[in-house]
Design a protein around this nucleic acid. Structure first.
Lengths: 195, 195
DNA sequence: ATGTCATTACCGACCGTTAAGTAAAATCCT
DNA sequence: AGGATTTTACTTAACGGTCGGTAATGACAT
């Protein structure tokens, strides 16, 4: 059990799954990239599906880990929301392949695995929900529809997997700030006068 | 060339592609759903890939058609933005399968077809960009980063393909209004006092 | 009798997976 | 220390199944 090798396989698989999709990527594609033959992969894994599950699992666990930490820290709801968004965006720049596969190919998982991953995803979204609810209670946020706001923010952030590439025009931090501002203040000019 | 039949095939294919993904859907799956045998499909189509292309093409064309019309109408940038978002959301409730496949499996298209579809997608996004730019010029929008705002709004709307199902808790119109409000005003309570 | 729409039967390619074997490194025994 | 044995990390070969697509053919409506 060579852990380094296992993680190498996982990261190559994640990259290829992302580029071509889970189904469209063959075991030989992965093997070729690792400069071994196809059956060599089966020394480390049991099935192709296990690879996908490991990737999706890694994605949501890493996502959760950071989010939990942020939720434990203190600060205003706005601050926490900003940090949560920043974390979300950062994950795409640090673990883009894994996250993209998790978002795009999670539905290729077997029933039970998919259910588990989805329940974790809901846990993750509950952090956003919690902050929104608290923000409204505290009178810092408008009385808006929380589930819809969560979907809006999730969409905004998850869509990063479609267009974001590290080393592009914007850093993750810049994107996070723009998104946070947009989500908190909207795009309309300040109602009562220029800022 | 029975056009009704062709469209029936397209809509069945779109539904299955959406449910299981393009690769995971077999021609026999589609045939079974249509209560014919697999070779019968080949009377109407040449390749499986053509089906995908037709679906992606239909998606972006329908999207474009409505958006173009809205851009030609008059009204404030806010109004037009609202209408554009409403149109976007409505497409998911009226053509969910087609749009979802277009968003999820467009990258399975052959190089040239994909390029074409992507150029059309950029055209579509340019409508959002145009409105944002005009809004800023007119002083109705804050001086924000336009490409990022477009990505934010695209993400918010396109993410509908992941969670939206017609007949759910919200109508397309309700969602559009919530999203528009969120995007224009943000979630923070009005800075200078309650609305 | 011609175009429409379907059938049965099949092919070739590919893909995930397994079987069996092997060179080299690590571990153990004395 | 050094030979024996086990483990690690692969290789080659091939199997079984699936899938996109085709050939050949037939029924049937106009």
């Amino acid at each position: 059990m060579n852990k380094a090798r296992w993680e190498e396989i996982l990261s190559v698989a994640a990259r290829l799954f992302r580029e071509k999709g889970y189904r469209a990527t063959t075991m030989e594609d992965i093997a070729r990239e690792l400069r071994v033959t196809k059956p060599a992969l089966y020394y480390y894994i049991d099935t192709k599906h296990d690879l996908l599950y490991a990737i999706c699992g890694a994605a949501i666990e890493r996502l959760m880990e950071g989010a939990k930490k942020i939720m434990r820290e203190d600060g205003s709801v706005e601050d926490k929301l900003r940090r949560l968004i920043a974390w979300h965006v950062n994950m795409f720049s640090a673990n883009g392949d894994v996250i993209a596969v998790y978002l795009a190919d999670e539905n290729e998982l077997a029933e039970d695995k998919r259910k588990f991953i989805r329940s974790r995803s809901r846990e993750y979204e509950s952090f956003y929900r919690e902050l929104m609810e608290r923000g409204i209670e505290e009178g810092r946020f408008r009385e808006l529809d929380v589930p819809m706001a969560v979907r809006a923010i999730s969409g905004m952030c998850n869509w990063l997997s479609v267009w974001f590439r590290p080393g592009g025009k914007y850093t993750a931090e810049e994107i996070a700030e723009i998104f946070s501002d947009l989500f908190l203040r909207g795009c309309a000019a300040a109602a009562g006068g220029e800022a």
